[in-house]
């Protein structure tokens, strides 16, 4: 059986791992490579590195650390941040990343998804979606440039339409980040993830809201996502990965035990 994936996310800013609450007030967590290695040893199934400043500052992610991770880590990892061209993607993949994830540039130029898929294959092209639930309108809206609060804007896309669009353009995986839940730790947005799952035929990764072990059980059992991404609960060691995986396994979630 294919195992559900536990995916620590490391937000990278100026070469350090950082974490903020609802995309603000970033605090430094630590160096990239030792943290990545620790997670791999503890049983993480995959790692995601987001350079959260990249898209906003109109520059590409500093790539020197990508090869150091590839040298030291023996699980798959994905790099996101400011990838706007085939050349940008080629460099990061050549440094050893298994996948690249695009978000704001895909919204600016949806053709980029198609072009990347043709060049590198569907399997390594991930589309990240920052979805915001607007309580006033009751709509799920896609946001762009979320790395910098002053530049964040609401796009013309509603989340489910954009999920369909990126698949039609060849995305190999979707990471749905529920912005209302980022860093809040009161559980994944099961309702929204269920809606997205219904229209998502590629692997779907849930992001935003993990605070305790039961949240992971809920998102796998109730929203049937392929992977669950989390940051602060792992960085701050509120949840130990091996304990999480043993617990999920006992509750009959298909999990790779290390």
């Amino acid at each position: 059986m294919l195992a559900k994936r536990i995916i620590p996310c490391l937000d990278v800013k100026d070469g350090m791992v950082v974490k903020g609450v609802q995309f603000r007030n970033h605090e430094i967590i630590g160096d990239i490579v030792p943290l990545a290695k620790r997670y791999a040893q503890e049983g993480a199934d995959e790692l995601v590195f987001y350079d959260i400043t990249a898209s906003s500052d109109d520059r590409i992610v500093d790539k020197s650390w990508v090869e150091r991770i590839s040298e030291q880590v023996d699980i798959p990892f994905c790099v996101a941040g400011g990838i706007k061209t085939i050349e940008d993607a080629a460099k990061i993949l050549a440094f050893g990343a298994d996948k690249i994830s695009i978000n704001s540039p895909a919204l600016a130029n949806p053709q980029l998804i198609t072009d990347l898929t043709h060049e590198f294959g569907q399997q390594c092209i991930v589309v990240g979606i920052d979805s915001y639930f607007d309580k006033d309108t009751g709509l799920y809206q896609v946001k762009q440039f979320t790395g910098d609060e002053t530049k964040t804007r609401t796009t013309k896309w509603q989340t489910l339409d954009w999920v369909k669009e990126v698949q039609a353009r060849g995305a190999g995986e979707i990471v749905l980040n529920v912005m209302n839940k980022d860093g809040v730790r009161d559980g994944y947005d099961i309702e929204q993830l269920r809606l997205v799952r219904d229209v998502c035929n590629v692997p779907l990764i849930a992001s935003g809201g993990a605070g305790e072990i039961s949240h992971f059980y809920d998102v796998f059992a109730k929203a049937n996502v392929d992977g669950a991404l989390a940051a602060s609960v792992f960085h701050k060691q509120i949840i130990e990965i091996d304990e999480l995986k043993r617990s999920l396994n006992q509750d009959n979630i298909e999990i790779r035990l290390c």
Binding site: L2, A3, D45, E46, E173, C200, D226, G227, R256
Partner: peptide, 15 residues
């Protein structure tokens, strides 16, 4: 084949 509505690509850890 996309049987049982399983997502494709087949991506992740399998036995």
């Amino acid at each position: 084949k996309n049987s049982d509505n399983l997502p494709l690509p087949h991506m992740g850890w399998n036995q």
